[in-house]
Design a binder for these strands. Structure first.
Length: 455
RNA sequence: GCGGGUGUAGCCAAGUGGUUAAGGCAGAGGAUUGUGGUUCCUCCAUUCGUGGGUUCGAUUCCCAUCAUCCGCCCCA
């Protein structure tokens, strides 16, 4: 046998029934985005390397060691995008969306991202994000609106999956759900107050240098805020006495308003002063959604984002405040999968996009064209129809119909061909009724199947 | 990038330095003579992730490699 080619490390195929889960997330998100007036934006999967270096920050791990960078035949340095925001901002500036769209511009995107990392559960080299970006407003109401959106999306997803299971005729397992998410939030300050704090913190850390772990010593110089996030117990204790950010008046005000608005929307948040994001562009509000109860799974952050008021200018646009977040598609699907975890193989096999309303089979080869013709006509009328592509005995067709989870079944043999009539059987009630072999007429006799969200 | 675990069919999984690698689920075909999920029968790994080595002989021991998982780093 020839050498088999496998999927590259850190990539995966999406196979049924997960493909439905993925589509459900995409559909649900798109629906919710539309309600918020967000428009989709599609940007290239690769960009000039310089874009990420400047936008995300040269010192970040993402840029320093995780980029898929290559040189094309024109000797340009290009990089497979490791995140979505930089590309969207680039397009916003390049496409003059500050003028072409009413401000703030409300955008969403989705697609694959690439980071060269050691794969683990919840962390792939090619993964997918769905994200939102609102550019052109510094209002705390935007922060709050987008965080509420992220929060509500998760609930809608659970509802959508449950609805889908019901449509498939599968019992929704009681009490079986993913651990609830909690929204953690922090303010990083702005261009006025953050540098001052950073300096002060760095100074404080250097004084106590001897008592910190090696990572923290390194981070003291590269990214002092991150020291506060260290998990080593000794460092944690020590950090309790670290100076806190003294946000300037406007930052305090901003944070307070975000808090108040979230409260008004009944979204509970956990203030987390240690919350630091790994990308340089964040300012003021940052947040992430993690399973409540803290650290069971290491790679469990489902959604994260924040305000990035300086990025647009950094990338050559006008001074434009903005807010955005991204959710990890695989991590989201992983959570939803817990709803399917306990299903029997029988139930599992019923998980499909669309339950057929009719299953057809030919009893003799000469009836096959008629079955085919009817099937085509019914599908053109909008019905979900399946059939056995070869003549078979009745019990065989019935079995196949049951396995396809069809509502009704129609057998066509020589008797039916000559009379032009056949018996339409309901698989649940076993009742049969006489129908003409005319698609339009047949259509009126078909019982609607559960159609899920597709309808 | 660092440290560790695992790798037998689509899934779960037994197994041993020695001719033919259990079993279950799923899948395919058939029987019960134009009407179904039961039952019954048959089939479904020349091969134990891959490549070397040790050995008379390796799925079993050793090395390498690949993949995956856990922790760290970091992140969605």
């Amino acid at each position: 046998m020839t050498q088999r080619i496998t999927a590259p490390r850190g990539t995966h195929d999406t196979l049924p029934p997960d493909e439905r889960l993925v589509a459900l997330v995409e559909e649900t998100a798109a629906r919710l985005f539309a309600r918020h007036g967000l428009r989709e934006i599609r940007t290239p999967i690769f960009e000039a390397t310089e874009l990420f270096a400047r936008g995300v920050g040269t010192e970040t791990d993402m840029v320093a060691k995780e980029m898929y960078t290559f040189t094309d035949r024109g000797d340009r340095s290009l990089t497979l995008r490791p995140e979505g925001t930089a590309g969207v901002v680039r397009a916003y500036v390049e496409g003059r969306l500050d003028q072409a769209l009413p401000q703030p511009a409300r955008l969403w995107y989705g697609g694959p991202m690439f980071r060269y990392e050691r794969p683990q559960k919840g962390r792939q080299r090619q993964f997918h994000q769905i994200g939102v970006e609102v550019l052109g407003s510094s209002s705390p109401a935007i922060d709050a609106e987008m965080i509420v959106l992220a929060h509500d999306l998760q609930q809608e997803l659970l509802d959508a999956v449950c609805a889908w299971l019901r449509d498939c005729g599968v019992e929704v397992p009681a009490g079986l759900e993913p651990t609830p998410l909690e929204v953690r939030i922090n303010s990083l300050g702005d261009a006025a107050c953050r540098p001052v704090y950073r300096e002060a913190l760095q100074e404080w850390l250097r004084q106590g240098a001897g008592t910190y772990c090696a990572d923290c010593l390194r981070r003291t110089e590269s990214n002092p805020l991150r020291v506060l996030d260290c998990k080593v117990p000794a460092c944690r204790t020590r950090n309790a006495g670290a100076p806190r950010l003294q946000p300037c008046a406007s930052c305090q005000d901003h944070a307070a308003q975000v808090r108040a608005l979230l409260e008004a929307a009944d979204v509970r948040v956990v203030e987390d002063p240690a919350l630091v994001r790994g990308l340089d562009y964040y300012s003021r509000t940052v947040f992430e959604m993690v399973p409540a109860g803290g650290g069971e799974a290491a790679q469990a952050t489902v959604c994260a984002g924040g305000r990035y008021d300086g990025l647009v200018a950094e990338l050559g646009g006008a001074d434009t405040p903005a807010f955005g977040w991204a959710l990890g598609l695989e991590r989201t699907v992983q959570r939803l999968e817990t709803l399917l975890a306990d299903l029997s193989p029988q139930d599992r096999s019923r998980l499909r996009a669309d339950r057929p309303v009719l299953f057809m089979g030919a009893l003799e080869a000469r009836a096959l064209p008629e079955v085919f013709r009817l099937g085509v006509a019914l599908r053109r009328l909008g019905f979900s129809v399946q059939w056995l592509p070869a003549a078979a005995k009745p019990d065989r067709i019935l079995k196949a119909a049951v396995r396809a989870d069809a509502r009704q079944v129609l057998l066509v043999g020589s008797d039916e061909l000559s009379s032009g009539r056949a018996r339409l059987k309901d698989l649940a009630t076993r009742e049969q009724r006489d129908v003409n072999l005319v698609a339009a007429e047949l259509g009126t006799c078909l019982k609607p199947a559960g159609t899920g969200l597709a309808s």
